[in-house]
Amino acid sequence: MARSQRGEIQPHEDYGFFGPGSVVWKVWSYPTSLTVGFQRAVVVEELDPPLVAAVHGTQGIYERPRTRYDRTLRYFAMVAFAGTREVCKAADVLVKVHSKAIGRLPYSEGTYDANDPDSQLWIQLTGWHSILYAYERYGPGRLTAAEEAEYWEACATAAELQTCSPADVPRSREGVRAYFERMRPQLSASPIARQAMEHLLRTELVLPPTPLWAKPASLAVAKAQRIATIATMPRWMRELAGIRQSRLLDALIVPVMRVSFAAVHLSPRLELLLLGRISPSTVPVVAPMKLGMTPRHEEVLTPAEARARHGYPRPAEAHLDLRARQAARVLGEGEAPSDLGLIESQESLGPLS
């Protein structure tokens, strides 16, 4: 299988923003990351009222759950592993896609905008924290102090691909905890948040159709991931969202997942095979790293160097005219936003259907 994959998978242009030997590649390449870590991130995110309003407004997770999951996971993986030109292009088109996720909050005064820096910071930190937490709980365990410091510096580097400011990214575990404590009073388990969280915990919705004989095993895997993801969520968060799971299940799932992930991690071929079941579009992003393929240029760039080389603006400064037009159309004229950017995004983020 590895030989056939090497024949089909193309090497990246460069090592991206982190590269071999980085703590990002160490943590994000472990199978906990693009499974439990990613699922935890997208579930926890829904407690932020502006973010869940944007998710609910587009209805993508309900109308096309598999492709929406696939596209989002692909972008997560691109930031860690893809070449800098690919990532810059994807980050740029994502600003266009997010420009349509704008409107009025359904349960309070005010508006939401998926490109808002505060929403983007929330996405960034819940994502990177969830990936690390899943790695620690179901993978090899805690990083060293030096590795952890490198990890949060890398998180700030990746924030340059969002509309938020890297200066707002904490550089330590304590700083991240303090951020979540500041956010806690703003979080809300509204009806649409609870609906989205429960929906996103249903791993079976993103799995491909399986023959009748394989359905029990597929459902067992989906159930195990759901239990594992819920077990990483603090009790106060579960109570807020109305998610219930016993402490016994929380404890029992740990050795099951640790052994399972460790076994899968022994074989890059198996990792890619299983990844292809939940996110086919992510396989070409991750495979060059898993298969040890050398990029066309053996270099790691900073986001600033990549933007200068490939001709992209900072995301915070990208497509300001489009974003203003979308805001005027939705908030001023009461019309539906334009879909500009969605079709274009398929080349970078994967198919819409």
Rank of each mutant, 00 (worst) to 15 (best):
A53D: 10
D116Y: 00
P303L: 03
D321L: 10
G57R: 11
A146K: 15
V52E: 12
Y135T: 04
R247F: 04
S29R: 14
L340H: 12
G332H: 10
S4F: 14
D48E: 14
F38H: 15
S22V: 08
A82H: 11
A318C: 09
E147H: 06
P117D: 01
R85T: 01
A316R: 13
H319Y: 14
A196I: 15
A53W: 02
K215N: 03
A82V: 11
A189H: 11
T111S: 03
L161Q: 02
F18R: 06
G57H: 11
R74I: 10
W152N: 06
S246Q: 08
T35K: 03
E45C: 05
V176A: 05
S190G: 06
V97L: 06
S22L: 08
G242I: 07
W128D: 12
A336E: 14
D118Y: 03
M197S: 10
D116M: 00
A145D: 15
S348D: 13
L342P: 03
A2N: 08
G311Y: 12
E174S: 09
S246M: 08
K89W: 11
S172M: 12
L266R: 15
V259E: 07
G139S: 04
P140G: 01
E305I: 05
P268L: 08
T210K: 12
V283I: 07
I253P: 01
Q326V: 09
R309Q: 11
L161Y: 11
I61E: 10
R329D: 00
G83R: 07
P284L: 08
A251S: 13
A328H: 13
G332A: 05
R314P: 01
L161A: 00
R40G: 01
G7L: 15
P255M: 08
D118M: 07
W128T: 13
A193F: 11
R329T: 05
A189Q: 05
S281L: 04
V95L: 10
A196D: 05
S130L: 00
A91D: 05
T144H: 04
